[in-house]
């Protein structure tokens, strides 16, 4: 069994982010970058599969992004992946996950062996979109199961059972392999890479490839154009809602729905 893990570098969720004055992007000064937490679930799931079964031949980690994303790839290798593929793209295309998925598909299909399992995070906490996984499945011609919280691969390694989180319940999905899975919080607890593994990861092979040189990618361009980034309406101090309890309830529900759009 061969497993592909897709990881992406994102700003640390604890970092306070600010936008460059001209709106052309994120002010990266002082911002620390980490492996997308959902992608860590994917990496952990892959490593756990290898620990539990004897038929996992290889775990390959692929990342796409600017050159600095190598750091994230190393983290994944430290968690237990065997080798890495780093696809270098210009930062300006990072918001078009369809384009990223195409590039990843182009990179991994160069290898004729193919993968039995492709594991991605449910979404990147940079774009908050979650487009990459399903789009990659489409480009690879694979079925996919999104946002899984439980995974069982059968003994012979040709079928899998997954539970996915949907509104109001859990969907139980059965699938044949190969398949692409996107991983949701709750699937596994990512490990803290041990120091020897971090050191070993520095020596694992990584192929670095420019997206433009991949088959079919020379002419490809993002379909969506990035216009700019703006800070959200300032999150001012807590808005205190006054009135009788009845009025409070009404007003609170109204603002949650109309201003915050969360219910």
């Amino acid at each position: 069994m061969r497993i592909l893990v897709v990881v992406k570098q994102v700003p640390d969720s604890r970092a306070s982010l600010s936008v460059l004055a001209d709106g052309s992007g994120l002010d990266k000064a002082g911002v620390r970058f980490v492996c997308n937490p959902f992608d860590e679930f994917a990496a952990e799931q892959a490593v756990q599969l290898r620990e539990k079964r004897s038929d996992v031949d290889e775990i390959v980690a692929v990342t796409i992004g600017p050159a600095e994303a190598l750091q994230t790839l190393r983290t994944t290798l430290a968690m237990g992946a065997d080798r890495g593929i780093q696809i270098v793209v210009d930062e300006s295309v990072m918001f078009d996950e369809l384009y990223l998925a195409r590039a990843i598909a182009a990179a991994v299909t160069r290898d004729e062996q193919g993968y039995d399992l492709v594991l991605c995070g449910k979404q990147g906490i940079d774009n908050d979109a979650g487009d990459l996984g399903p789009a990659l499945a489409e480009y690879l011609g694979l079925p996919h199961i999104g946002a899984i919280v439980e995974l069982v691969v059968n003994e012979s390694g040709d079928r899998a059972n997954a539970k996915r989180q949907i509104e109001g319940g859990l969907e139980v999905v059965e699938t044949g392999l190969p398949v692409l899975l996107t991983c949701e919080k709750g699937l596994v607890e990512p490990r803290y890479p041990s120091l020897p593994n971090i050191m070993k990861a520095k020596k694992k092979p990584v192929e670095t490839v420019d997206a433009k040189t991949l088959p079919g990618m020379a002419e490809a361009a993002p379909r969506a154009t990035f216009i700019g980034l703006s800070p959200p309406p300032a999150r001012e101090a807590c808005t205190i809602i006054e009135g009788t309890p009845e009025e409070m309830a009404k007003e609170l529900v109204r603002v949650l729905r109309e201003e915050a759009k969360v219910i």
Binding site: R14, A15, S16, G30, Y192, S194
Partner: peptide, 27 residues
């Protein structure tokens, strides 16, 4: 060497490393 510790400590380690404090507080 084994990467084993009570789960909340992982969060703390990452917070110290990334945010410079153990409370996951933004800088």
């Amino acid at each position: 060497e084994k990467g084993e510790c009570p789960a909340p400590l992982q969060e703390m380690f990452q917070s110290v490393e990334m945010a410079g404090n153990p409370y996951s507080a933004p800088e």
